[in-house]
């Protein structure tokens, strides 16, 4: 019914919003980061690590990978023109995709779900994995919001996104906050990737389509609005499914995401829930 896949779009959309809010860049490599970390989890599982241990280790690896990419690559171009940063993020996308293909091959692989198919909470409408992944995603989102709302570090990260110069003046290490933001976004992506893989199968291109839906969700929710992203994620998931079933068929349902992107950008550039801000010059 689209609710479960919607949670994946919502999680990844929030990752996009986090990075956009703090740096004003759309990180096109967000999906490939998620895919790559899902392979990390897959490797751990194959080495015999229990599921939830590998889940936790993968989140730690994702954090380091995200923060590391910011420190080593993104930080060096943060004052560059928009075109440069777009090209850098496309470069990262291609590099991560190629690296995954090189290390793990392009073979499509099954990925296990931690929620057993015959679990008592599975129904004919909602499989146990769909219910489980929705709950895992919602729990992750709740943790992220609590972190931003209630911790000193979260407050400092919000301050950095709102006004980097004033943040420096109260003694916040802005570069560290941005790296932290990249790390957190990668963690959100990793959750989305690990929850998506049992449905979409694991392969280097698995996140290509998902990123387009997530981008549609991020724009629909308002690219500056962290509350809108997950809500819009569910909406996009449901619309995609209904359109796939009754309107355009599954063959070209990715078009639905592109239509959403175009319509939002034309009619409501600040998103369905977004407020438009007008800059005074």
């Amino acid at each position: 019914m689209g609710f479960a896949t919607g949670s994946i779009y919502g999680g990844l959309a929030l990752a996009l919003v986090l990075i956009f809010k703090s740096t004003h860049h759309v990180n096109l490599a967000q999906g490939e980061l998620a895919m790559f970390t899902t392979y990390v989890s897959w490797s751990l599982l194959r080495a015999g690590v229990p599921y939830w241990a590998s889940f936790a280790l993968t989140l730690a690896a994702a954090f380091l990978l995200g923060a590391g990419i910011h420190v080593l690559v993104v930080r060096r171009v943060q004052h560059a023109p928009v075109l440069t940063t777009v090209i850098v993020s496309i470069g990262l996308l291609i590099a991560l995709n190629g690296l995954a293909g090189w290390i793990f091959q392009y073979t499509i692989r099954p990925f296990p779900s931690p929620f057993r198919a015959d679990a008592w909470y599975g129904t004919s409408h909602f499989s146990s994995h769909e219910l489980g992944m929705t709950l895992v995603t919602l729990a992750t989102l709740a943790l992220v919001y609590a972190f931003f709302r209630y911790t000193r570090l979260g407050l400092a990260m919000r301050a950095t996104a709102i006004n980097p110069e004033s943040s420096l003046l109260v003694g916040i290490r802005v570069d560290d906050m941005l790296a932290l933001g990249w790390g957190l976004a990668a963690v959100l992506g990793a959750v989305a990737g690990m929850m998506a893989a049992p449905i979409f199968y694991l392969e280097p291109n698995m996140m290509g389509g998902i990123l387009v839906y997530a981008l549609a969700a991020a724009l629909l929710g308002g690219i500056e609005n962290p509350w809108g992203a997950p809500l819009a994620g569910f909406a996009v998931g449901i619309v995609e499914n209904l359109a796939g079933a009754y309107l355009v068929g599954t063959q070209i349902k990715l078009t639905v995401a592109l239509v959403i992107i175009v319509v939002v950008l034309i009619f409501r550039p600040a998103g369905a829930f977004g407020r438009r801000t007008v800059a005074r010059v």
Binding site: R152, L155, A156, R158, A159, I162, N163, E165, S166, S167, L169, V170, G171, I172
Partner: peptide
């Protein structure tokens, strides 16, 4: 700073807490 540089989307108290960051 000139132009005050407050964090406009944060509350007054959050601004003050950031001062003691």
């Amino acid at each position: 700073p000139e132009g005050r540089g407050t964090f406009e989307e944060l509350t007054v108290e959050e601004n003050l807490r950031l001062g003691a960051y």
